[in-house]
C-alpha cells in the first residue's frame, strides 16, 4: 500500500494514496461536514457541503482522492458561510418540521443546522406541496423531508442486487420513490437500513416512532463532527 504526504490545514499528514479526502481527513482528526456522502457507498458529490479548498480551488471532498503533495484547507470564513447557506437552502426548499419528526436528534441536516447556528434561513421558505408515500407495507417515504441526496438509491439493494429506490419525475419536481417491484419482499432489516441510510426523516419504518425519547438521541448526546474533532 502506497502512502502519500499531503497538507491538511497547514499540517503535514500521511494518507493512503487514492483515499477519499473526507475519510483521510477523519483519520487525521479533521472533520469535513458531509450530507450526501455515506461510508461504503459510492460518492456522488450531490450536496456540496463538503467543499474544501484543494490547492486553492474549491473541490467536493467526498469525490476527491488524496494525492501526493496536495494541499487542503477545510475551513475558511467563506467555506463556513457557504456551508451554512447550503443547510439554509435545504431547509427553505423542503418542509422540515423538526418538532414532529421521528429523526429529530438523529438527523444530519438538523445537526448541521445547529453546527452552523442557523436561526432563520436567509432564503424565503418555499413551502412546497409534497406528498407522503405510504402504500408500502414496511416503509413510508415522506417527500416533504427528502433532500435528494440519493444515498438511498446508491446504498440500498434487495437480495437480487436491485435498487429499491428510484427517481421519479424530473427537474425541480424530481422525487425519489420506492420501487414497487424491487421493494416487494424486503426484510425488516433492510427496511431499517433504508431508514438509517437517510440523513433526514424522509424514509420511515411503519409503526416505528419515538421509541427513543428526544434527548437520548445521537446528536442530543454530542454535536455532529465532535466524533471526529471534539
Amino acid at each position: 500500500m502506497a502512502f502519500v504526504r499531503f497538507m491538511l490545514d497547514g499540517q503535514e499528514y500521511l494518507a493512503e494514496e487514492g483515499a477519499q479526502l473526507v475519510a483521510a481527513a477523519k483519520d487525521c482528526g479533521v472533520y469535513i461536514p458531509t450530507l450526501c456522502n455515506y461510508p461504503g457507498v459510492r460518492p456522488k458529490g450531490a450536496c456540496r457541503i463538503c467543499t474544501v479548498l484543494v490547492n486553492g480551488i474549491p473541490h467536493t471532498a467526498c469525490t476527491t482522492k488524496v494525492v501526493e503533495d496536495m494541499s487542503v484547507v477545510t475551513s475558511t470564513p467563506e467555506l463556513e458561510a457557504f456551508r451554512k447557506s447550503i443547510v439554509e437552502i435545504l431547509f427553505a426548499e423542503g418542509n422540515h418540521l423538526c418538532p414532529i419528526c421521528e429523526r429529530s436528534g438523529n438527523c444530519e441536516l438538523q445537526a448541521l443546522a445547529y453546527r452552523y447556528r442557523m436561526t432563520v434561513p436567509q432564503f424565503p421558505y418555499l413551502f412546497p406541496k409534497r406528498d407522503v408515500e405510504a402504500w408500502h407495507p414496511k416503509l413510508i417515504k415522506d417527500h416533504n423531508r427528502c433532500i435528494l441526496c440519493k444515498r438511498c438509491i446508491r446504498g440500498i439493494f434487495n437480495e437480487e442486487g436491485q435498487a429499491i429506490f428510484a427517481f421519479g419525475k424530473r427537474g425541480d419536481r424530481l422525487i425519489i420513490n420506492i420501487d414497487p417491484e424491487t421493494s416487494k419482499d424486503i426484510s425488516d432489516e433492510l427496511a431499517q437500513q433504508a431508514m438509517d441510510i437517510c440523513p433526514v426523516g424522509a424514509i420511515l419504518r411503519k409503526g416505528k416512532g419515538f421509541d427513543v425519547p428526544i434527548g437520548r438521541r445521537t446528536y442530543d448526546q454530542q454535536p455532529i463532527g465532535s466524533e471526529v474533532a471534539p
Partner: peptide
C-alpha cells in the same frame, strides 16, 4: 395525512 405515531408529538 401524517403517520399516526406523529399525532401525539404534533
Amino acid at each position: 395525512g401524517r403517520p399516526y405515531w406523529e399525532a401525539p408529538v404534533l
